[in-house]
Design a binder for these strands. Structure first.
Lengths: 216, 216
DNA sequence: TTAATTATATGACTCTCGGTCATTAACAAG
DNA sequence: CTTGTTAATGACCGAGAGTCATATAATTAA
């Protein structure tokens, strides 16, 4: 009966080999130029075979994305501390994300790509997207720390935890999208990336209202 | 010598006709499916002719983007008031942006597309991008109101105005990118778009720290 | 008015790329 | 050994961006 299992293992193995080959292309040519023909050649398989393991090019890209996401998740988890309050842990999460963006530039670009497009229009198994969103996504980690922060008083308690988390996460994505894609353009304004990051955290923490602002 | 000028006018006219045709396709098929062949047919010109007026498909898309951006700029400008302080005007700008996203869904999607990709890798005249960024971009309006807000005391004076503006703008983009592309996915969490917008403005105004947070 | 020059327009063609499918090869079961 | 099943192949298709030799129209010069 071990024969079916061996086959299953081999199938997974081959799938991984393909992703490995795809990554080698991806890390050199960038994900925009990842063609199925090239992947097939690199994997020493025919193009048709790729489609036995992946529904589409998007599906293959998503597999690479998941590898990057796993790394990010690990980095984030490693920086959380039971001693810190929710707010500090959130700062730690932000820090991990930023470090990830610098240390794994390629994975990070792919990550941002998938985080800013309409995933549900992709020709990939929609179920794995749901799994990612609910369990494997960094947003879940953010959510947990926000809940913790509300409980320990380090964060505002007057906002709905889930909405609160999604908002913080989206703001962070926006900052990083702009920094990643517009950095060189913004240089005409002499805007330094780290300043924007710093200012972002400052605003999110303390707001942007001035002392003289009348609240009514 | 008005002959050269007439030619120039005619050239502009034809260029506009092409953009008009492209928009008709764009508004029905969406910008992902905007093909040069279709545009050519709709404009009653040959495909080759399109390339006399636009360097590439991206270039043509950028032209449509600019039309949308002009509308957004007008809407934003119309909602500014000399009587309001900088902070209130900023809220007005945010409101205009949100209204734009609802009333001009197609333009808005295209706008977000260009605001979240690496423009400088596109095969379009880089000079018009610079012009857009420096003068025609909504960011310039934000910048002006932030400066005003710092002056009139309605906004924090301890942040660099330019960095401050870019940060607020990027956060807003992030929020809208997520809402636009992930709305349906987030529904599994019962997150309502307006709640996120509301929470975003709230955080940006007053921060997210709780009362019990020790600042040191 | 006509010839020469220049600007504009054409559409067939190329090239790239994602995806498919009839055919073949490898392998397991009886 | 035969039959059935699963995996692999690569020639092929269709779509779409961009090009270019050729043709046409407009302008200028003679």
């Amino acid at each position: 009966m071990g024969i079916a299992e061996r086959k299953e293992r081999e199938k997974q193995q081959r799938r991984n080999d393909i992703i490995d080959a795809a990554e080698r292309i991806f890390f050199t040519r960038g994900f925009e130029n990842l063609t199925m023909d090239e992947v097939a050649e690199e994997a020493e398989l025919s193009k048709g075979t790729l489609y036995l393991y992946f529904k589409s090019r998007d599906d293959l890209q998503f597999a690479i994305f998941m590898r990057g996401s796993d790394i990010l998740m690990r980095m984030m988890n490693d920086n959380l501390s039971d001693e810190s309050d929710g707010y500090r842990n959130l700062l730690a999460l932000a820090g991990s994300f930023i470090r990830f963006s610098k240390e794994y530039r390629d994975y990070f670009n792919l990550f941002m790509h998938f985080e800013t497009i309409r995933m549900n229009e992709l020709n990939i198994d929609q179920e794995q997207i749901q799994v990612y969103l609910k369990e494997q996504s960094p947003l879940a980690l953010v959510s947990r720390q926000v809940a913790r922060g509300i409980e320990d008083g380090s964060m505002r308690a007057d906002l709905l935890p889930e909405v609160f988390s999604a908002t913080l996460w989206s703001q962070m994505l926006g900052i990083l999208v702009v920094l990643t894609n517009k950095a060189d353009l913004y240089e005409i304004f002499d805007l330094k990336a780290d300043d924007i990051l710093q200012t972002h955290l400052e605003i999110v923490s303390h707001g942007s209202l001035g002392s003289k602002h009348e609240t009514r």
